[in-house]
Design a protein around this nucleic acid. Structure first.
Lengths: 201, 201
DNA sequence: ACCCGCATGTAGCGGCGCTATAGTTATAGC
DNA sequence: GCTATAACTATAGCGCCGCTACATGCGGGT
């Protein structure tokens, strides 16, 4: 081992940055604060992460890992496509509430989207592709359009949740928007739209 | 006289900051860049605006003025409440497309919302209050809930638009989300829900 | 004429992201 | 065991940022 075996510097830096971002938001992640918290000097940070943006990216990636992990755990995978979409929606909202300081950094209002941003969208898109093949989307609604619409509305609701995680009334808001989108995108008479999935999981 | 009497320093600073924010986003509004563009030294900026946040606030207020001005011009005010809501939605979206750098600052993901934020919401709320009194909202949908839901979804779509103002496909996304919300909030059999308004206008 | 208060300029502080340079440490080859 | 090499970390400092103590100039009220 090149260095102190117990204290991996990169991991310490990342953990410190993640904690600061979770508590005070991504803007509070200053290189000096992170270095102090990790007990390390500035060049080490730049050696491991390139620059501050790289560090933030790593933090956001870690947050996405946590996000996908939670989402997998909450996947219902039963027949009703509405329930599947609703569960994904609710998992997304639950994550925004659990990490209100991190959410805006994961879905930034300006600047390039994080790398896992696309992966998150592809998951949703795959589900709608399946529905489209099964003819379960409403007329005029393509899988791309459904993905785009649901995602935009979801982000708006999640931002509201992240902005005030304590307000319990936000749950009803989320449910109303969620059901409005599901109703507008998915046809009414859908039973099980996944003939292409022979086995469970 | 030290300078051109017609050129009010405060106005010059505000105009410079507005232009920078419009072109490159609010983050690009540095005190030095604004002072240089306005041909003024730093203390004048702080004399007129207190601090950088105050300057940004003034820029956002000016943007909201422009927003309300545009929205008033686009108000249809005919009978159908759906058309009214849809027109307000489209005006909001059009503004986000016209000022993509300013929009995220007007509806920030974190930090205190701008003062005119509430005014913007009150306008929407007043319309839904009217619909609620007329019994035009769907069962279980209060005016407060309708306002919250429509606003959250609208913000999500507007952020998407502001993030990529050139993509024409975003228009369909906006229309889908808009109509989904209108359908979910407003009852089907509404003709003219404004009995409290005797005359036109 | 005087002073006073408002507006602006001069110069500088501390914090920020970042880096040129040098020193340190662990493994590889002999 | 000893050195060469490469990865890693520390010292010190640059330029930009928001912000301000202080000095200077301008106008109006008495």
């Amino acid at each position: 081992m090149l260095q102190n075996p117990a204290a991996d510097v990169r991991a310490r830096l990342l953990a410190a940055a993640f904690e600061i971002a979770r508590r005070d938001g991504a803007d509070a992640v200053t290189t000096r604060a992170v270095c102090t918290a990790a007990g390390v000097q500035a060049p080490s940070l730049y050696h491991h992460f390139g620059d501050r943006a790289g560090l933030i990216r790593a933090v956001v990636d870690a947050a996405f890992e946590e996000y996908f992990h939670r989402k997998d755990a909450a996947a219902p995978d039963d027949g009703d496509p509405r329930a599947r979409v609703a569960a994904g929606w609710d998992a997304h909202i639950a994550f925004a509430r659990a990490y209100p300081g991190l959410y805006p950094a994961m879905y930034p209002a300006s600047g390039p989207p994080p790398s896992q941003f696309e992966r998150s969208g592809a998951l949703l898109r795959a589900g709608f592709d399946e529905l489209e093949r099964a003819g379960a989307l409403r007329p005029g609604i393509t899988a791309a359009l459904a993905t785009s619409a649901l995602r935009a509305a979801l982000r708006g609701v999640a931002l509201k949740i992240a902005g005030d995680p304590g307000d319990p009334g936000n749950d009803r808001t989320s449910a109303v928007v969620r059901d409005a989108l599901i109703h507008a995108l998915i046809a009414d008479d859908v039973r099980d739209p996944s003939p292409s999935r022979p086995g469970p999981r």
